[in-house]
Protein backbone atom coordinates (compact mmCIF):
# COMPACT_ATOMS: atom_id res chain seq x y z
CA UNK A 1 0.00 0.00 0.00
CA UNK A 2 1.20 3.51 -0.76
CA UNK A 3 1.93 6.09 1.86
CA UNK A 4 -0.46 8.98 2.43
CA UNK A 5 1.30 12.05 3.77
CA UNK A 6 -0.47 13.96 6.53
CA UNK A 7 0.89 17.38 7.44
CA UNK A 8 0.68 17.59 11.24
CA UNK A 9 -0.90 20.66 12.85
CA UNK A 10 0.38 21.34 16.32
CA UNK A 11 0.37 24.10 18.86
CA UNK A 12 2.80 24.23 21.77
CA UNK A 13 3.84 20.67 21.13
CA UNK A 14 0.27 19.34 21.19
CA UNK A 15 -1.06 17.57 18.12
CA UNK A 16 -4.32 19.20 17.05
CA UNK A 17 -7.51 17.22 16.71
CA UNK A 18 -7.73 17.88 12.97
CA UNK A 19 -4.52 15.87 12.51
CA UNK A 20 -6.10 12.86 14.21
CA UNK A 21 -9.04 13.28 11.82
CA UNK A 22 -6.68 13.33 8.84
CA UNK A 23 -4.86 10.23 10.10
CA UNK A 24 -8.21 8.46 10.49
CA UNK A 25 -9.07 9.43 6.91
CA UNK A 26 -5.61 8.53 5.60
CA UNK A 27 -5.92 4.98 6.94
CA UNK A 28 -8.73 4.37 4.47
CA UNK A 29 -6.63 5.63 1.59
CA UNK A 30 -3.27 3.99 2.30
CA UNK A 31 -0.57 3.93 4.96
CA UNK A 32 -0.57 7.16 6.95
CA UNK A 33 2.76 8.96 7.26
CA UNK A 34 2.67 11.96 9.56
CA UNK A 35 4.89 14.91 8.66
CA UNK A 36 6.00 16.99 11.63
CA UNK A 37 7.38 20.45 10.90
CA UNK A 38 9.06 22.88 13.28
CA UNK A 39 10.10 22.68 16.93
CA UNK A 40 8.07 20.97 19.64
CA UNK A 41 8.29 17.31 18.66
CA UNK A 42 8.23 14.99 21.66
CA UNK A 43 7.68 11.41 22.74
CA UNK A 44 4.17 12.40 23.68
CA UNK A 45 3.48 13.77 20.18
CA UNK A 46 4.94 10.63 18.66
CA UNK A 47 2.71 8.42 20.81
CA UNK A 48 -0.36 10.40 19.81
CA UNK A 49 0.36 10.17 16.09
CA UNK A 50 1.04 6.43 16.35
CA UNK A 51 -2.13 5.90 18.38
CA UNK A 52 -4.19 7.25 15.49
CA UNK A 53 -2.46 5.20 12.85
CA UNK A 54 0.76 6.87 11.73
CA UNK A 55 2.94 4.07 10.34
CA UNK A 56 5.75 6.53 9.76
CA UNK A 57 6.54 9.90 11.23
CA UNK A 58 8.77 12.21 9.24
CA UNK A 59 10.31 14.70 11.62
CA UNK A 60 11.64 18.00 10.30
CA UNK A 61 11.87 19.93 13.54
CA UNK A 62 14.39 22.62 12.73
CA UNK A 63 13.31 26.16 13.53
CA UNK A 64 14.24 27.27 10.02
CA UNK A 65 11.13 25.69 8.66
CA UNK A 66 8.75 27.91 10.59
CA UNK A 67 10.78 31.12 10.51
CA UNK A 68 9.66 31.92 6.98
CA UNK A 69 6.16 32.18 5.57
CA UNK A 70 4.75 28.93 4.11
CA UNK A 71 7.42 28.26 1.46
CA UNK A 72 9.75 26.00 3.53
CA UNK A 73 6.92 23.64 4.43
CA UNK A 74 5.90 23.37 0.79
CA UNK A 75 9.52 22.64 -0.07
CA UNK A 76 9.73 19.90 2.55
CA UNK A 77 6.53 18.24 1.35
CA UNK A 78 7.76 18.39 -2.25
CA UNK A 79 10.94 16.63 -1.14
CA UNK A 80 8.91 13.91 0.62
CA UNK A 81 6.57 13.46 -2.33
CA UNK A 82 9.53 12.78 -4.56
CA UNK A 83 11.18 10.35 -2.12
CA UNK A 84 8.07 8.52 -0.88
CA UNK A 85 5.77 8.69 -3.95
CA UNK A 86 2.65 8.86 -1.79
CA UNK A 87 -0.87 8.18 -3.04
CA UNK A 88 -1.99 11.55 -1.73
CA UNK A 89 -1.06 14.46 0.52
CA UNK A 90 -3.59 15.55 3.14
CA UNK A 91 -3.50 18.87 4.97
CA UNK A 92 -6.02 20.63 7.19
CA UNK A 93 -8.15 23.24 5.43
CA UNK A 94 -6.71 26.09 7.47
CA UNK A 95 -5.62 29.34 5.85
CA UNK A 96 -1.94 28.49 6.15
CA UNK A 97 -2.12 24.80 5.27
CA UNK A 98 -4.14 25.63 2.16
CA UNK A 99 -1.37 27.99 1.11
CA UNK A 100 1.19 25.25 1.68
CA UNK A 101 -0.96 22.96 -0.45
CA UNK A 102 -1.14 25.61 -3.17
CA UNK A 103 2.61 26.10 -3.38
CA UNK A 104 3.21 22.37 -3.21
CA UNK A 105 0.80 21.84 -6.11
CA UNK A 106 2.94 24.07 -8.31
CA UNK A 107 6.21 22.49 -7.18
CA UNK A 108 5.06 18.94 -7.94
CA UNK A 109 2.75 19.85 -10.83
CA UNK A 110 -0.29 18.28 -9.16
CA UNK A 111 -3.88 19.19 -8.64
CA UNK A 112 -5.14 20.53 -5.33
CA UNK A 113 -8.64 20.40 -3.82
CA UNK A 114 -9.52 22.65 -0.90
CA UNK A 115 -12.14 22.42 1.84
CA UNK A 116 -13.05 18.78 1.35
CA UNK A 117 -15.57 17.47 3.88
CA UNK A 118 -14.92 13.85 2.95
CA UNK A 119 -12.79 11.70 0.67
CA UNK A 120 -14.21 8.61 -1.00
CA UNK A 121 -13.26 5.85 -3.38
CA UNK A 122 -10.74 6.92 -6.02
CA UNK A 123 -9.74 9.94 -3.91
CA UNK A 124 -12.92 11.74 -4.88
CA UNK A 125 -13.39 14.68 -2.52
CA UNK A 126 -16.75 15.94 -1.28
CA UNK A 127 -17.02 19.71 -1.13
CA UNK A 128 -19.80 22.00 -0.07
CA UNK A 129 -19.81 25.25 -2.07
CA UNK A 130 -21.74 28.50 -2.47
CA UNK A 131 -22.42 28.81 1.21
CA UNK A 132 -23.55 25.21 1.57
CA UNK A 133 -26.07 25.41 -1.26
CA UNK A 134 -24.37 22.94 -3.59
CA UNK A 135 -22.54 19.68 -2.92
CA UNK A 136 -19.75 18.87 -5.32
CA UNK A 137 -17.59 15.79 -5.84
CA UNK A 138 -14.21 16.56 -7.37
CA UNK A 139 -11.04 14.74 -8.17
CA UNK A 140 -7.49 15.55 -9.04
CA UNK A 141 -6.64 14.56 -12.60
CA UNK A 142 -2.89 15.30 -12.71
CA UNK A 143 -0.08 14.30 -10.40
CA UNK A 144 -0.32 13.38 -6.72
CA UNK A 145 -3.66 14.52 -5.27
CA UNK A 146 -3.27 17.21 -2.61
CA UNK A 147 -6.41 17.58 -0.53
CA UNK A 148 -7.15 20.12 2.20
CA UNK A 149 -9.78 18.68 4.54
CA UNK A 150 -11.98 20.75 6.83
CA UNK A 151 -11.62 20.29 10.55
CA UNK A 152 -14.50 18.40 12.21
CA UNK A 153 -15.47 16.64 8.99
CA UNK A 154 -14.22 13.21 10.08
CA UNK A 155 -15.04 11.40 13.35
CA UNK A 156 -11.71 10.32 14.86
CA UNK A 157 -10.92 6.69 15.57
CA UNK A 158 -7.79 5.38 17.19
CA UNK A 159 -6.02 2.44 15.50
CA UNK A 160 -2.40 1.94 16.37
CA UNK A 161 0.28 2.40 13.73
CA UNK A 162 3.97 1.59 13.95
CA UNK A 163 5.00 5.22 14.33
CA UNK A 164 8.46 4.60 12.86
CA UNK A 165 10.37 7.81 13.16
CA UNK A 166 12.45 9.21 10.33
CA UNK A 167 14.44 12.40 10.76
CA UNK A 168 14.36 14.56 7.66
CA UNK A 169 17.09 17.07 7.15
CA UNK A 170 15.98 20.11 5.29
CA UNK A 171 18.11 22.77 3.77
CA UNK A 172 15.61 25.57 3.28
CA UNK A 173 16.47 27.20 -0.04
CA UNK A 174 17.19 30.91 -0.27
CA UNK A 175 14.09 31.30 -2.43
CA UNK A 176 11.95 29.92 0.40
CA UNK A 177 13.48 32.40 2.86
CA UNK A 178 12.09 35.48 1.12
CA UNK A 179 9.44 36.35 3.73
CA UNK A 180 10.82 36.22 7.25
CA UNK A 181 8.68 35.96 10.37
CA UNK A 182 10.34 38.41 12.77
CA UNK A 183 7.81 38.21 15.59
CA UNK A 184 4.79 36.15 16.63
CA UNK A 185 2.18 38.07 18.53
CA UNK A 186 -0.22 35.95 20.56
CA UNK A 187 -3.48 37.58 21.41
CA UNK A 188 -5.19 36.41 24.54
CA UNK A 189 -7.89 33.91 23.81
CA UNK A 190 -8.22 32.36 27.24
CA UNK A 191 -8.77 28.67 27.63
CA UNK A 192 -11.37 28.36 24.89
CA UNK A 193 -10.91 25.91 22.03
CA UNK A 194 -9.94 27.21 18.63
CA UNK A 195 -12.92 28.35 16.59
CA UNK A 196 -12.46 26.12 13.54
CA UNK A 197 -11.65 23.05 15.64
CA UNK A 198 -14.25 23.39 18.37
CA UNK A 199 -16.96 20.76 18.73
CA UNK A 200 -19.35 23.46 19.94
CA UNK A 201 -19.49 27.10 18.82
CA UNK A 202 -21.65 29.81 20.40
CA UNK A 203 -21.95 32.92 18.21
CA UNK A 204 -23.40 36.33 18.87
CA UNK A 205 -24.63 38.91 16.38
CA UNK A 206 -26.00 42.42 16.25
CA UNK A 207 -28.72 41.37 18.68
CA UNK A 208 -26.10 41.13 21.44
CA UNK A 209 -26.06 44.90 21.41
CA UNK A 210 -22.62 45.79 22.74
CA UNK A 211 -19.09 44.61 23.37
CA UNK A 212 -19.77 44.33 27.11
CA UNK A 213 -22.84 42.20 26.53
CA UNK A 214 -20.75 39.63 24.64
CA UNK A 215 -19.91 38.35 28.10
CA UNK A 216 -23.27 36.53 28.14
CA UNK A 217 -22.23 34.74 24.94
CA UNK A 218 -18.84 33.92 26.48
CA UNK A 219 -20.46 32.56 29.64
CA UNK A 220 -22.69 30.21 27.67
CA UNK A 221 -19.68 29.13 25.61
CA UNK A 222 -17.64 28.45 28.73
CA UNK A 223 -20.43 26.41 30.32
CA UNK A 224 -20.36 24.15 27.24
CA UNK A 225 -16.60 24.18 26.68
CA UNK A 226 -17.28 25.94 23.39
CA UNK A 227 -15.54 28.48 21.19
CA UNK A 228 -17.06 31.94 20.69
CA UNK A 229 -17.94 33.20 17.22
CA UNK A 230 -19.50 36.40 15.92
CA UNK A 231 -21.39 37.66 12.92
CA UNK A 232 -19.92 40.35 10.74
CA UNK A 233 -22.34 42.92 12.14
CA UNK A 234 -20.77 42.25 15.55
CA UNK A 235 -17.15 42.35 14.34
CA UNK A 236 -17.81 45.44 12.20
CA UNK A 237 -19.20 47.18 15.26
CA UNK A 238 -15.98 46.32 17.09
CA UNK A 239 -17.81 44.24 19.70
CA UNK A 240 -15.71 41.17 19.04
CA UNK A 241 -12.35 40.70 17.27
CA UNK A 242 -12.37 39.98 13.56
CA UNK A 243 -10.62 36.62 13.83
CA UNK A 244 -13.78 35.23 15.42
CA UNK A 245 -16.02 36.18 12.51
CA UNK A 246 -17.96 33.25 11.08
CA UNK A 247 -19.12 33.38 7.48
CA UNK A 248 -18.35 34.07 3.88
CA UNK A 249 -15.40 36.34 4.60
CA UNK A 250 -14.66 34.92 8.03
CA UNK A 251 -14.03 31.43 9.35
CA UNK A 252 -15.89 28.36 8.21
CA UNK A 253 -16.91 26.17 11.11
CA UNK A 254 -18.41 22.71 11.06
CA UNK A 255 -19.03 21.87 14.71
CA UNK A 256 -21.28 19.26 16.26
CA UNK A 257 -23.35 22.09 17.73
CA UNK A 258 -23.71 25.73 16.66
CA UNK A 259 -25.70 28.18 18.76
CA UNK A 260 -26.58 31.48 17.06
CA UNK A 261 -27.86 34.25 19.33
CA UNK A 262 -29.06 37.54 17.89
CA UNK A 263 -27.99 36.54 14.39
CA UNK A 264 -30.46 36.91 11.54
CA UNK A 265 -28.95 34.20 9.36
CA UNK A 266 -27.88 36.17 6.28
CA UNK A 267 -26.64 33.97 3.46
CA UNK A 268 -23.08 35.20 4.04
CA UNK A 269 -23.24 34.11 7.66
CA UNK A 270 -24.77 30.77 6.74
CA UNK A 271 -21.85 30.18 4.38
CA UNK A 272 -19.66 29.76 7.43
CA UNK A 273 -21.80 27.52 9.62
CA UNK A 274 -24.32 25.70 7.45
CA UNK A 275 -22.54 22.35 7.76
CA UNK A 276 -22.84 22.27 11.57
CA UNK A 277 -24.49 19.01 12.65
CA UNK A 278 -26.96 20.57 15.07
CA UNK A 279 -28.03 24.23 15.06
CA UNK A 280 -29.81 26.19 17.77
CA UNK A 281 -31.09 29.72 17.14
CA UNK A 282 -32.14 32.33 19.64
CA UNK A 283 -33.73 35.39 18.06
CA UNK A 284 -36.57 37.71 18.96
CA UNK A 285 -37.84 37.86 15.37
CA UNK A 286 -39.86 34.71 14.48
CA UNK A 287 -39.28 35.50 10.78
CA UNK A 288 -35.47 35.51 11.05
CA UNK A 289 -34.05 33.24 8.33
CA UNK A 290 -31.75 31.53 10.85
CA UNK A 291 -34.82 29.59 12.04
CA UNK A 292 -34.98 27.86 8.64
CA UNK A 293 -31.73 26.13 9.53
CA UNK A 294 -32.35 25.55 13.20
CA UNK A 295 -32.95 22.12 14.68
CA UNK A 296 -34.19 23.95 17.72
CA UNK A 297 -35.15 27.61 17.98
CA UNK A 298 -36.26 29.93 20.72
CA UNK A 299 -38.15 33.06 19.73
CA UNK A 300 -37.27 35.46 22.48
CA UNK A 301 -34.91 38.04 23.93
CA UNK A 302 -31.40 36.65 24.12
CA UNK A 303 -30.79 38.69 27.26
CA UNK A 304 -33.29 36.42 29.01
CA UNK A 305 -32.82 33.16 27.16
CA UNK A 306 -29.02 32.94 27.02
CA UNK A 307 -28.30 33.45 30.74
CA UNK A 308 -31.10 31.03 31.64
CA UNK A 309 -29.67 28.44 29.29
CA UNK A 310 -26.21 28.96 30.80
CA UNK A 311 -27.57 28.43 34.32
CA UNK A 312 -29.35 25.26 33.24
CA UNK A 313 -26.25 23.87 31.57
CA UNK A 314 -24.17 24.55 34.67
CA UNK A 315 -26.86 23.01 36.89
CA UNK A 316 -27.14 19.84 34.85
CA UNK A 317 -23.42 19.12 34.68
Amino acid sequence: MSEVLVLVEHVEGQVKKVTLELLTLARRLGEPSAVWTGPGYSAEAKAKLAEYGAEKIYVADSADIVDYVVAPKAELLAQLVSSASPAAVLVAATAEAKEIAGRLAIKIDSGVLTDAVGIGEGLVADQSIFGGGVNVRSRVTKGTPIIAVRPNATPVEAAAGAGAEEQVSVAVSDAAKAAKVVDRVKEEKGARPELTEAAIVVSGGRGVGSAENFSIIEKLADSLGAAVGASRAATDAGWYPHQFQVGQTGKTVSPQLYIAAGISGAIQHRAGMQTAKTIIAINKDPEAPIFELADFGVVGDLNQVVPQLTDEVVKRK
Partner: peptide, 27 residues
Protein backbone atom coordinates in the same frame (compact mmCIF):
# COMPACT_ATOMS: atom_id res chain seq x y z
CA UNK B 1 -5.35 19.70 -12.73
CA UNK B 2 -8.68 18.73 -11.19
CA UNK B 3 -12.27 18.21 -12.28
CA UNK B 4 -15.77 18.26 -10.91
CA UNK B 5 -17.11 14.70 -11.10
CA UNK B 6 -20.68 15.64 -10.27
CA UNK B 7 -22.72 18.03 -8.18
CA UNK B 8 -26.18 18.40 -6.69
CA UNK B 9 -28.15 20.95 -4.73
CA UNK B 10 -27.65 20.33 -1.02
CA UNK B 11 -30.69 18.61 0.49
CA UNK B 12 -32.65 21.02 2.68
CA UNK B 13 -32.31 20.59 6.43
CA UNK B 14 -35.23 18.92 8.15
CA UNK B 15 -37.53 21.43 9.83
CA UNK B 16 -36.69 21.96 13.49
CA UNK B 17 -38.72 22.71 16.59
CA UNK B 18 -39.29 26.41 17.24
CA UNK B 19 -40.65 27.52 20.61
CA UNK B 20 -41.66 30.94 21.85
CA UNK B 21 -39.98 32.05 25.03
CA UNK B 22 -42.51 32.23 27.84
CA UNK B 23 -40.00 32.66 30.58
CA UNK B 24 -38.67 29.14 30.11
CA UNK B 25 -36.95 29.38 26.71
CA UNK B 26 -33.52 28.74 28.21
CA UNK B 27 -34.79 25.69 30.09
Amino acid sequence: WSEVADFAAAPPRAAGTIVKDEGDGGV
